[in-house]
Structure formats: structure tokens, C-alpha cells
């Protein structure tokens, strides 16, 4: 281990570069676990509402565009691959490849967000929004041909958000688990809109929105890495930042890989 190479990057309170690298990695893993826990709260909310009201999820997910979701999944998995490759290039000192691969990863992220924006725009036009903004328009739903083909009636707004003090009839007390008979109700849901469809779209926008923010944060980090890579700061002796940014990017992808089936592929 050639000490001269490391000294520039070795902070005064570490004894060895190995210790510094290991500390950085441990810190990053801890940070990533907090990210997963952050999403964990939303996954819990998802689980609670889906087990209590499966009919809402079965009904409403058909308004999502599975094709666009699938394309986005492929894009993100691809970006994870280019990212891993980029880290490898940094370790091997392949300067040019590193720059190119980081660039491709950022482009993938842009593509992902672009498709996401198209999806959001459709929802916006059709009033398929969260909570009290949910106002489905009867003549729309054209972007969800699958739903139309199955004779699905478009959801209608059932809430009047202005009347806060007038709580609708109390729902049955939530059960810990889905009660028997939910499957039958779920079948029925294909015919007409269940109550509280907006719950699904609230969860959809919260989950994909928070994920989108993480993608943007990842793009900022990756752009910074790209800048430093162009300046030639990384090489076999020092690649920790690229490595850590890569870990972060993989977690962002991983979360999407869970979001996609949970939101788009419900049966």
C-alpha cells in the first residue's frame, strides 16, 4: 500500500486509509438503512390500507399504465448496471469509461423522470389525484384501455372535502387482517367503483413522489461525481465517493423494484 497516494485524502483523525474507507462504507450502509425505514412507513401504510380495503387497490390500480411502469423498471435496472460498471471502472482507473457510464446513468435517471412526468400528467388531466383533489372525470379514462376493455366504470368523486365537520357514516372498525369474503368483494369491484378510491391515489402519489425526490437527489449526487470524474479525481487509489454514490443509487432502484409490482401489478 503506497502511503503517499492516500495521504491527500486521509483525514487527520483516521490512522489508515482502510479505516477511513471502512468507516465511510459503514456510515453509508447505516444511512441507506434509514432511507429504507423512511419508505418503510409508507409501505406500512400501504399494507394497512390494502389489507383493510383490497377492493380499492384492485379497482384503482388499473388506472395506472403498466406499460410505462414496466419501461421505467427496465430503465432503472439498466442504470443500476451502468452504475455498477462505473464503480468498477473507477477501481480500475478507466477514466474515460467512468465518465461515459456516469453520464449514461444520469441520462437513464432523466428518462425515468420524463416517463414519470407523462404518467403524472395523465393522472392530472383525469383528476385521478390524491385525497381531496381526487375528482375523476366520467368521460376520461382513455389512457387506461385495459380498464375500459373490461367494462370498468370510471370512478366518481364521492367526497365533499369542504364539509370537514360532517364525517360520513363510520366505516367498520379496521381489522388487523383482511376478513374472509374480501376476495368476493374484490371481484365485484371490477363492476363499479368502491368507496374511497382516492386512498389508492394518495398512496400512489406519496410513494412515487418520495421516490422521485430520491431519484432527483441521486441525479445531483451523480452529476457531482461526473464533474469530479471529469477532473480526474478518481482512480484505483481513491474511489470511495463513486462507490458510496453507487450504493445509494442501487437502493433508489431497489425501492422502485418494490413499488412497481405493489402499485401496478395487483391481482
Amino acid at each position: 500500500m503506497s502511503a503517499e497516494h492516500h495521504d491527500a485524502h486521509l483525514a487527520h483523525h483516521f490512522d489508515t486509509p482502510i479505516q477511513q474507507l471502512e468507516s465511510g462504507k459503514l456510515g453509508m450502509w447505516i444511512f441507506l438503512s434509514t432511507e429504507i425505514l423512511l419508505f418503510g412507513g409508507l409501505f406500512c401504510a400501504y399494507a394497512v390500507y390494502r389489507s383493510n380495503h383490497p377492493e380499492i387497490f384492485v379497482y384503482a390500480h388499473r388506472f395506472l399504465d403498466t406499460r410505462l411502469g414496466a419501461i421505467n423498471t427496465v430503465i432503472l435496472i439498466g442504470s443500476s448496471f451502468t452504475m455498477a460498471w462505473a464503480v468498477r471502472c473507477a477501481q480500475l482507473g478507466k477514466q474515460k469509461a467512468l465518465v461515459v457510464l456516469l453520464g449514461v446513468t444520469i441520462l437513464c435517471a432523466c428518462g425515468f423522470l420524463g416517463i414519470k412526468a407523462v404518467e403524472y400528467e395523465h393522472k392530472w388531466k383525469d383528476g385521478l389525484l390524491w385525497g381531496k383533489r381526487y375528482k375523476a372525470k366520467t368521460e376520461h379514462g382513455a389512457h387506461a384501455p385495459a380498464a375500459k376493455a373490461k367494462g370498468l366504470l370510471p370512478p366518481t368523486a364521492k367526497v365533499n372535502p369542504e364539509v370537514k365537520s360532517l364525517i360520513p357514516l363510520p366505516a367498520e372498525a379496521p381489522h388487523g387482517l383482511a376478513a374472509p369474503g374480501h376476495a368476493a368483494r374484490a371481484e365485484h369491484a371490477a363492476m363499479e367503483a368502491p368507496k374511497n378510491v382516492q386512498t389508492f391515489f394518495s398512496i400512489y402519489f406519496l410513494m412515487t413522489g418520495l421516490h422521485g425526490i430520491h431519484v432527483i437527489a441521486g441525479m445531483v449526487v451523480l452529476s457531482w461525481m461526473l464533474l469530479r470524474a471529469i477532473r480526474g479525481e478518481f482512480g484505483p487509489a481513491y474511489y470511495t465517493p463513486v462507490d458510496l454514490a453507487g450504493l445509494y443509487w442501487h437502493v433508489v432502484d431497489l425501492i422502485w423494484i418494490y413499488l412497481f409490482p405493489l402499485l401496478y401489478l395487483i391481482h
Binding site: G131, K164, N196, I203
Partner: peptide
């Protein structure tokens, strides 16, 4: 509306 009974 995640915590609002009026919105389910």
C-alpha cells in the same frame, strides 16, 4: 387524506 376519516 391518509389520516383523515372524511377521506377514508
Amino acid at each position: 387524506g391518509i389520516f383523515d376519516p372524511a377521506l377514508g
